[in-house]
Design a protein around this nucleic acid. Structure first.
Lengths: 182, 182
DNA sequence: TTCTGCTATGCAACTCGTTGCATAGCAACC
DNA sequence: GGTTGCTATGCAACGAGTTGCATAGCAGAA
């Protein structure tokens, strides 16, 4: 399980509350690891009990108080320990690919509906790519002069960008094939 | 949940036993949906109870008997019903991206170890790409003249190929960045 | 002042997926 | 005859992830 590790990385990059983490997981970190706020709160609780993170109450004005988490020394050790473990092959789960193969067993009207869905899906990923590119321009304007952390964050973002471009090209191909059958 | 649907697609393409399905999930279908034999048997049992698939005992010589599953009419309806539902955004979970960002909080020796892991991981995906390309050559030698099912299977395979190529390029970039820090 | 909406945290129940184990038929090899 | 290895099926326990719900502070608008 790597949610714990994703949280440790995120908190090392920037301490924050469970709520803030959930928002980061919706945005930047969600590029490579998704999680809901319930999962995050539950895991934070366990991590706090194990001494991997520490929390301080922070009063805010105009807002409810929050509990800000930081990574402790043992938490850092847990992270580096995990970093040195072998990289496991990923579990791939891609609904759309199942649907495309399934479309062979549907009728023309059903395939037409699927085409609409794929177009909608593709438009969503076009938006996502645009957001990544905007984020890249904003956060990494100067490719040469940056810290280790920034350069590693940048290469991960470039991975997200490459993935989205690949996906958009592939979806174009899928639409061509699906339209041949309608 | 789409494991049920992946199984329905696979059984429509070719009826088979739980064991055979598990082997297909290791190979072709595992490109876009992974599952272990335990999961598959459990889900098959439930699907049989709900009448989505039917089983016949098949005697084999030189081997234990097997139970071969086929999709029933209700099962087909379940599949087409699912095909017409909106495509959900995928849950992305990529260990390696977490590790790359985490490498900023490791020391030089740790990053050196990670480089070795990434190289090993990359070599695995090079092999996988080679297998996909060999499979493409074997199964889809003639791009023009094929059935709907074959063309849709081919476009999904091309997606796998595009993904692996993108991944290999990205891993090259990751290795360059990690080596800058060692 | 009530309603909407964002910040902030959490429980409970459930489903999905993983891991470890167990059983059994049959073939081939040593 | 024992061992190894592949085919074939399954249970039980656990851990991970999802869904629905609940609570509460505070701001701004209607």
């Amino acid at each position: 399980m790597a949610l714990e590790h994703a949280i440790l990385v995120s908190l090392l990059e920037q301490p924050g509350s469970g709520y803030e983490l959930a928002r980061r997981f919706e945005r930047s970190i969600g590029r490579f690891w998704t999680a809901t706020h319930q999962q995050i709160y539950r895991v934070l609780k366990r991590m706090e009990a194990e001494g991997w993170v520490t929390a301080v109450d922070v009063e805010q004005d105009g807002r409810p108080d929050k509990r800000e988490f930081s990574v402790s020394a043992p938490g850092r050790d847990v992270l580096t320990g995990w970093l040195h473990e072998p990289v496991q092959p990923e579990a791939v789960r891609h609904d759309l690919a199942v649907k495309v193969r399934g479309a062979a067993f549907d009728d023309a009207a059903g395939r037409a509906a699927l085409i609409g869905e794929v177009e909608r899906y593709r438009a969503g990923h076009e938006e996502l790519l645009a957001r990544y590119l905007a984020g890249e321009k904003r956060d990494f304007p100067d490719p040469g002069a940056s810290t280790t952390g920034e350069r590693l964050q940048h290469v991960v973002l470039r991975g997200g960008i490459a993935y989205e471009r690949m996906l958009l090209d592939w979806l174009t191909e899928v639409l061509i094939e699906l339209r041949k059958e309608s």
